[in-house]
Structure formats: C-alpha cells, structure tokens
Nucleic acid binder design. Structure first.
Lengths: 146, 146
DNA sequence: TTATATGCAAAAGCTTTGCATGGGT
DNA sequence: ACCCATGCAAAGCTTTTGCATATAA
C-alpha cells in the first residue's frame, strides 16, 4: 500500500499551506484528507462536497483554488466543462484514459510518452511547467478477459 | 497556402451536415466559415460571436454542439473552464503549447509523440477515438532570437 | 409545405464574491 | 488579540432550453 505516499503528500500540503500563512480549519482539513484518500482520481467540487460531513460550496472552491495556486493539486477540465482535481505528487505522476462509453477515467503511466513530451518541449524551446495527456476510446475486450 | 485544405474541410462539413438532415442557415454558414479561416485555433463561443455580423449565442452554441456531435470540430476545455473549438481535419492534426504567461496557444505536431500515444493505447488494450496533449510552460529566449 | 434554423428571453449549472461570524495560532 | 477560515446568500459567467418566427429544401 502507498500509505507512505499519502502521508508524505499530506505532510507536504500542511507545510506548504502553513508557510503561505493559511490555517487549518475543519473544512480544509476534511478536503485535503479526502483528496489524499487512496484511489481518488479527478474529483469534482460537487463530489467532494457530497462526501464532506460539513462544508459549504464556498469552502470547497476556495480551498481547491488555494491548493491549486500552491501547486498542491492538479486541475483538469474534463470534456463536460466541470473542473476535476487530484493531488499533485511527483511520485504519482500519471495521465488518463477516458472511456467514451462510461466517462470513467483510468490513470496510466508511460515512460516513452514522458520522454516524447520532454523532447517536444526541448525542440520547441519551451521550459515545461506542466503537461496533460488525455486519451479517449473504448476498452477492447478479447476472449482472454471477462 | 492551404486554401485547398480549407475547402476540403468546408466541403466535408457541408456534406456531413446535409446527410444528418441539417440545413444551411445564415448563422451556421458564417460559423463554419469562420472556423475554417486560416490560423484559427481554439476559438471560444464568445470569440466566434464577436466576429459574427449576425448570430445569437444560441445559434453559436447549437451549431458548435452539432459540429462536435458529427465529429467536425474538436472541443478542448482550457484551464479557465471555457470551451474552445477548432476544425477537426486529419491533415491538420496537432496539439497545443500554452504559454503560462500569456495564455496564448501555439499548435505543434510531433511524430514521436503520436507514436508514443499509439503505443500506449495498444498496451492498454484501448481502441483510440481521440487524444489531446497540452503542454504548458514558458518560451526560452536565448541570445540567438529576438 | 414541412421540418429545420434562428433569435430572444429565461433558466440552469458551475463557480466566485461580499459579508458577518466562528475559530486557529 | 489578530487574522484567517467558514458558511450563507447573492451575484457572475458560460451554456442550455422553450418558444415563436423565419427560412431552406
């Protein structure tokens, strides 16, 4: 399990937020912990809100903005125009496959893809600050599975 | 110049729309022609509206939805959450570099990147229906330029 | 002639902001 | 004590929808 990874990001988040002069209220604490939960990928503000015992839309949006501004979360605007967030951890760097049938996102990593992106940036004379790759399609079901 | 490319897409668009039972009104015609103009990349509905002599928000959004549903345009949700459209032409396939300073998008193509994406899809067992790559950063200005 | 396109106005949804109150440090 | 966080309510924006009218085929 990557309990360790989760705690590392939580610690990092707390440290970064403190240094920025932010204080830990109930809403922020709950949001940060939710984002760090295992298997969480591309959560919307609404989804976070639904899972919070307490918390108002404004707290959620404000906290997410804060986290995004500090580089603690990634923000991805999906095809439906709704912003989705996930923790930004170098050790969990990944991209997403979106099933066009269900809309479900699946994370994946690929070394060759990363190298290709670095190469493009070099060729274009760009100092990279971030990159997103989204691939859309349908899972091929062959006889060997399900 | 790629006048030829433009006309090819325009013809294709008209044909596809007709086959879908759509009719060519003033608004749609203007929108389609604007999209096909040279150098147009990632236009917002608002930008289109501003450049239309006539046309209402509803016509613009409805036409863009129609074009998107028929696969005639790509829709990209930028970081600001506003949808941007550009014509979908296999011969103009490209991705985008977004300058984090100005927000300006610059199109680019890269063969190695395309191959990497195809390889990922194969590895994941995914039949690709589309993919987007966005790289964000800052242009490096060295002594040899500007 | 008949189904579709258009435009206006109203509504819907996500997100932001103002402000008074509560709470962290 | 001071300043930040929170929550409510209201506002802002982009986008969608209902409906009457105009228009393409």
């Amino acid at each position: 399990m990557d309990q360790t990874l989760r705690d590392r990001w939580l610690a990092e988040a707390d440290r970064t937020l403190s240094r920025a002069g932010r204080r830990a209220g109930a809403a922020r604490t709950a949001i940060v912990e939710l984002l760090a939960s295992d298997g969480q990928c591309l959560l919307t503000a609404q989804e976070l809100l639904d899972r919070l015992p307490h918390g108002s839309p404004s707290s959620v949006y404000r906290t997410l903005d804060e986290l995004f501004a500090l580089g603690l979360v990634h923000r991805l605007n999906a095809h439906d125009g709704v912003a989705r967030y996930e923790i930004a951890d170098p050790l969990r760097h990944h991209h997403h496959f979106i099933d066009v049938g269900t809309g479900t996102p699946t994370p994946f990593t690929d070394e060759a893809l990363e190298r290709a992106i670095q190469a493009v940036a070099r060729r274009l004379g760009v100092q990279l600050s971030g990159h997103d790759v989204v691939i859309r399609g349908r899972k091929i079901l062959d006889e060997t599975e399900s």
